[in-house]
Design a protein around this nucleic acid. Sequence first.
DNA 1: CCGGATTTGTACGTATGTATT
DNA 2: GAATACATACGTACAAATCCG
Lengths: 140, 140
Amino acid sequence: MIDRRSDRAFYKQLADELREQIASGHLAGGARLPSQKTLAEKYGISIDTVRDAIDVLKAEGLVVTRQGQPTRVREAGPKQAVPLPEDFVAVGARMPTQEERDRLDLATGVPVLVVRTSEGEMVYAADSTHLVATDASSVA
Amino acid sequence: MIDRRSDRAFYKQLADELREQIASGHLAGGARLPSQKTLAEKYGISIDTVRDAIDVLKAEGLVVTRQGQPTRVREAGPKQAVPLPEDFVAVGARMPTQEERDRLDLATGVPVLVVRTSEGEMVYAADSTHLVATDASSVA
DNA sequence: CCGGATTTGTACGTATGTATT
DNA sequence: GAATACATACGTACAAATCCG
C-alpha cells in the first residue's frame, strides 16, 4: 500500500513494493505485472506516477516493457561462460553506449562487461555472460 | 535541433543530441547542462519532454541530477585497481540492488562488478573500480 | 542570517499515437 | 475490427533543495 502521509514519494513507494515482490519471488522471471492502469486504480494514484515507478525498475534492470505488451519481470537468460584471457589487463563494467544497445539488443538497465587486453577491448552483455578463469577446470 | 517531422520521439532526439555533446567532449565531465527550463524553451518542447530525455541519460550513467542543483555530466572518479583473486570462479556485472545503491552511494546508471570465489561474493562499484590480474606487474 | 531566485522533484490532468493480442 | 497496453507530449501546480546577494 501507499502511505500518503509518508515523506517518501509515491512512485518510490510503489517501486519499493514491486521490487520486493520481485526479490521475494512472488513475481518470478517472466511474470506479468498488472497494467499501469490497474496499478493506478489499485493504489489510487495517477498513471504518470505508476510510470515513474516502472521507470525506476527498468533502470534497475528488473522489468522490461514493450509497447502493446504487459510489463514483465526481466528474465535473465542462461549465462554463457567466457574464458578470461590470460593476458587481460583489466576488467570493468559500465552501461552500454547507444550503439552497443542497438547492436547487442540490450534492454534498459543491462550493463556490459569490458575486458581489456593488450590487443584491445572486448565487450560482453553482462546479461548473458560471465567471465571465468581461463583454466575452466575449476568452474562450477 | 529537433525534427518535428521525424518519427523519432522528441525526447529521444534531445537525448541523442546531448549524448553526442558528451561523447564529443563538448560537454566534459562535471560540466553543467542547461536547465530543463532553458532546454525546453530552446527546443520548443515541454519541460516534461526534456525530463524524459534527461532520464534516458541518467539511466545510461551519463549525467547526474540533484534537486536544487544544475544537472551535470557524471564524472567518473579515478578508478582503483583491485587484484582479481587467483581462486575466482566467475566475474559478472549487474545493476545494484536498492541496498547496494544506498550502501555504496551509487548514482543511477552505475553498475556493480561481482566477483565470485569459493569463499563467497565480492561486490564493487564499477564506477570506481576495475579488476586487474593478481600479478599486478603488467598493469598500465 | 535571511530572502529571493533558480533548479530539480513530485503529482496531477488530458489527449493522442502505436503495437500487440 | 475491437480491446488492451504501453508510449509520447502537452499542460498545471506546488514542493524541496540549493545558491547567491
